[in-house]
Amino acid sequence: MDRIPILRMGNFLLVTIQVDLYDRLALTLEADLVQMVKKTNAKGVLIDISAVSIVDSFMGRIIGNIASMSKILDSETVVVGMQPAVAITLIELGLPLKGVHTALDVEKGMLLLKSMIDENVDDADLDEQDDAFAE
């Protein structure tokens, strides 16, 4: 079965969707991604949809789901690279993707993730991060 690769980059997970999604592929991605968040202790998920030309209500819902699921696993999600035509279509369709953070490109998305995670860091997490840097 087809699968969308999930890359690990430090504290973050990186997903670049390069193919046209059909329902099962999107559902598999959702399940894989949530598993990976737990397994890798990821603090952030970055989803690049710059190559996706169509986001319909189902796909939109999956993106929203991934963001909410990651959130309750203590991880932030940022969707980057949405094409303008996709944004127009999503709003007209009635799917404003509330609760999903977005950025224009991968670079800005990474900065946003970093800033969100810095805000969330409390003392306990600081120790952990120091350890991570020492490695």
Binding site: S53, I54, V55, D56, S57, Q83, P84, A85, V86, I88, T89, E92, L93
Partner: peptide, 14 residues
């Protein structure tokens, strides 16, 4: 145009 294409294909997809 691209925007109309996207609208049409999204509608078809639904």
């Amino acid at each position: 145009g691209l925007v109309n294409q996207t609208r049409l294909i999204t509608a078809a997809s639904e």
